[in-house]
Simulated assay, not measured.
Amino acid sequence: MKRILLLGAGGQLGQDLQEVFLTDLGYEVVPVGREELDMERPEMVGHFLKQQSFDVLINCSSYHRTDECEDYPLKSFTVNSIAVAELAKACNRQGRLLFHVSTDYVFSGQKDEPYLEADATGALNIYGISKAAGEQAVAAYHDKYFIFRVSSLFGKAGASGKGGNFVETMIRIAQEGKPISVVADQIMSPTHTLDIARAMKAFLDQDVQAYGTYHCCSTGSCSWYEFAVEILRQAGIPAEVSPVPAANYVTKAKRPAYSVLNNEKLQAVFKMPKWKTALTEYLTRKEYLR
């Protein structure tokens, strides 16, 4: 039996990971909460992991409130970079496999075709810069790792600290009968966290040893506006959605205009579904579709 330590167990991805591994007796998932390991105290990471018996560490924890990160850069780098470096060092010392979750926001958005794993990063905001630094730390201090870059997540548990994910927000606003305006010039790949959890399990089931960085996102891409329209269409909620430019929304953190990830490398291990198919499964799980 493989014993998995799971950081960030309470989030969308963390909860879906627990669900995916729950019925497989070949794995034991041990959720690790902030009260046990506070990533804002990276000096505690090595000591904590030294006391644990585990085969795999999955790090889903991060400080991911993108605009807030602009105001708290020290916290961003402490959680997303420095503590991650300590995770990598500890896993290296103990010879343990590390899965680390990163983001499409490590890229600048200046390309007009999907980003490859080998493309140079060029984040536009503190969150993305701190996550890119975390990736570099993992690669510098450990050899036995998988970095999964993910994109525009939606999961059954909702986004912790963000008041629910984008899907839930669109449905709530539409049900309240309020006008909906959504950015139409930022392009990404909406991804169901359950599919990421399945991909991680596939890597473990197949004992993949081609370590490195993988883009783990739904197949295909759309704008946030197109995503909103499809959410409401599938959910059968009549609403008028207006496309607007990102320039209409002034935010502290800049967002990439194009952050689509090429997932062909990962597809050799696990087939990620098209984003519309992933959305249908999510809406079914949430009982919007019957």
Rank of each mutant, 00 (worst) to 15 (best):
K252W: 04
Y27R: 07
V106M: 10
D67M: 05
F77Y: 15
P243F: 12
A210F: 05
F107E: 08
S130Q: 04
N263P: 12
A246P: 00
D119L: 04
L74S: 05
S81P: 05
R93H: 10
L204V: 05
A210M: 09
I4R: 08
H192T: 00
F107A: 04
M1P: 07
E176M: 13
C216S: 15
K162F: 12
L289A: 09
D119W: 11
C69P: 05
L25A: 14
Y282W: 12
C217W: 00
Q15N: 11
K2Q: 15
V208D: 10
C222L: 02
D185W: 01
R34Q: 12
A85R: 10
L232W: 02
T251L: 14
S108R: 12
L7Y: 03
L266S: 04
K276D: 01
G11Y: 02
L13N: 06
C216V: 15
G212N: 10
V106K: 08
A247G: 14
K265D: 05
T23P: 01
M1L: 09
E19K: 13
R285A: 13
N263D: 12
F203K: 05
Q51C: 00
E35S: 13
L17Y: 02
K274R: 14
V30A: 00
Y127G: 09
D104W: 01
R198M: 08
K286C: 11
K144Q: 15
T277P: 00
L17G: 02
D16K: 01
R149C: 11
Q12R: 06
Y127H: 13
N165W: 02
K254P: 07
C91A: 12
R96S: 14
I147W: 03
